[in-house]
């Protein structure tokens, strides 16, 4: 294992998003703050509650997860497609890094960005709401695993995309709908039975539900089910990525 090389690629990927901090960290935090102001306060005033919690309190873990997931995805997907477009992916391909090391570094950087942005949203929410977590361990487990899944999905989208348009299609027609329909803004028990059933086929739902369990020790499905689904999804995404990287699909001639 080339740890020094892997660490260098991770460092480079973190430096990359940090160098455009306003775009990659500050902007998503502000956008999420707007969600919180509009939905949280309006629905709080209307007396909406989920699981006996004020809507704002219920909403914040969902918003943290939404932001974390979307930013983890963006980090690896935009980095890879930019590297392909600018040609600098060649530098990585000419290095002695293995496909596994490349994968680990990209996913680790996506986790870092996801956690940084998620923490930003949490801190902003904490200023306006009485927030607490019941189990920091579950919060962290689901935050890290979900960011890893989304980082892996982002890498997958970056590998398969030939241009920014392809990536935008993946993001807008797959990632955004699945995250919005994952119970970020609601409990699936509030949905009609058919939508409850359909929600259970959305792997992102388990990430959000498990993460929310860490805050309230209450979830729509068992936290162990959420953990098993999230881990299985991560394994599948990792396996597909490694297969593509080893074969050099769309990155070698």
């Amino acid at each position: 294992m080339n740890w020094a090389g892997t660490w260098t690629l991770l460092y480079k990927e973190v430096r990359r998003f940090w160098s455009v901090f306003i775009q990659t960290v500050l902007a998503p935090v502000v956008t999420t703050l707007l969600y919180l102001l509009i939905f949280g306060h309006l629905l709080d005033e209307g007396g909406v509650q989920f699981d006996n919690l004020d809507y704002g309190t219920f909403l914040i873990p969902g918003l943290v997860m939404l932001t974390l997931m979307q930013n983890a995805f963006s980090n690896s997907s935009s980095s890879l497609i930019q590297s392909k477009m600018h040609g600098n992916l060649t530098f990585i391909l000419l290095s002695p890094l293995s496909p596994l090391e490349i994968y680990l570094a990209f996913v680790a950087a996506a986790i870092v960005r996801g956690l940084v942005v998620g923490l930003g949203v949490f801190v902003v929410g904490w200023l306006g709401y009485d927030l607490y977590w019941q189990s920091l361990a579950w919060v962290l487990v689901f935050a890290v695993l979900s960011a890893a899944v989304m980082g892996g999905l982002g890498l997958l989208a970056g590998i398969l995309s030939d241009k920014y348009d392809h990536l935008a299609a993946f993001q807008n027609f797959v990632v955004v709908p699945l995250t919005f329909l994952a119970g970020v803004f609601y409990s699936i028990h509030s949905l009609p039975p058919l939508w409850q059933q359909l929600s259970q086929f959305n792997p992102f739902f388990y990430m959000v539900d498990g993460f929310r369990y860490g805050f309230f020790l209450h979830s729509d499905v068992s936290v162990w089910t959420s953990l098993a689904v999230t881990l299985s999804f991560l394994l599948v995404v990792s396996a597909i990525n490694l297969y593509l990287l080893v074969r050099g699909v769309k990155i070698k001639n």
Partner: peptide, 15 residues
């Protein structure tokens, strides 16, 4: 995102 010297350091780091 990187200067010439940073790029050379990063490329060295891969090795």
């Amino acid at each position: 995102f990187f200067s010439v010297r940073e790029l050379l350091r990063i490329q060295s780091g891969y090795f």
